[in-house]
Design a protein around this nucleic acid. Structure first.
Lengths: 143, 143
DNA sequence: AATGATTTTGAGAATCAATCTCAATTATTA
DNA sequence: TAATAATTGAGATTGATTCTCAAAATCATT
């Protein structure tokens, strides 16, 4: 399904769905959660799919424009992406130590935001909430 | 006032309030809105305050730990900071039509987030919430 | 004020993610 | 199949940030 969308998107711009692009799309589609370009590149290499860093970066860029994935955030460890196709809305906690991203969703939080918008006469379309701090694992490590 | 806070913070860690650090603090304190390390460095140079990039970066790092400034966001063009001393915490609504930024604060929202962190074993340090949509004025215009 | 210990600075090197270059390769079209 | 156009990969480049380390500044003690 994603492949069909991607192919159409490319075609409309006179671009081609190559072996490499398809491979990257497959990888991102099958990913649960988040990924970054470098890890994705290394994983593909390990599975002896031959691909270059340049192609990974280039293709992720296109997938963003296409709307199948999204930049979540730029960190010291690189840019974090997530697939958006078929994913419900959620917010993020970001660990400042290891860069791990925790997804969460709270109905209360959503409702509260909508109430606040009403109060300000603001028509909500969407939002991004990111809580920064330290994850369980890192807290255990450093005490 | 900020200088007193900074000095105490440094002293408690066996560090010194040097000429360079004081100059950077003065610059960040007097800034309205946002700034980035490179611009700050260049501005100081233009005013013939001699300072190195290394010191700018190092000092901004310390000022963050001290809580006088905060990283707002990493972009392709570098990290954006803002001073936080004397600025209450707030979140933003961003109008997609006219670009207006509405600042707001909700105690309930803050509490709810802290509760969520507890639930995930996540140690909260801070957060950024941006609600995107359309402001009152723009809604009136376009109906 | 001199001594010695400690911290800080700056210039440039190093790092690291991301982008760019361009010749070779691959896919598409006529 | 030839001509045309898009894509790839290896490595060079960029740009922000961090690191190195000798020289300079600061502090505490006499």
């Amino acid at each position: 399904m994603e492949e069909k969308i991607f192919k159409k998107f490319l075609k409309d711009r006179g671009q081609r769905l190559t072996r490499e692009r398809a491979a990257i799309l497959r990888k991102t589609s099958s990913s649960q959660g988040h990924f970054d370009p470098e890890s994705l590149y290394l994983e593909m290499k390990k599975k002896s799919l031959k691909i270059s860093r340049a192609s990974v970066y280039r293709t992720l860029h296109i997938l963003c424009e296409c709307g199948l994935i999204e930049k979540v955030k730029k960190t010291e460890h690189g840019t974090i992406y997530e697939k958006t196709y078929g994913q419900g809305h959620h917010d993020h906690m970001l660990c400042l130590s290891c860069g791990e991203v925790i997804e969460f969703y709270s109905e209360d939080l959503e409702r509260l935001q909508k109430d606040l918008c009403k109060k300000y006469g603001f028509q909500w379309t969407n939002h991004t909430l990111e809580i920064q701090g330290y994850c369980k694992k890192c807290l255990k490590k450093t005490g």
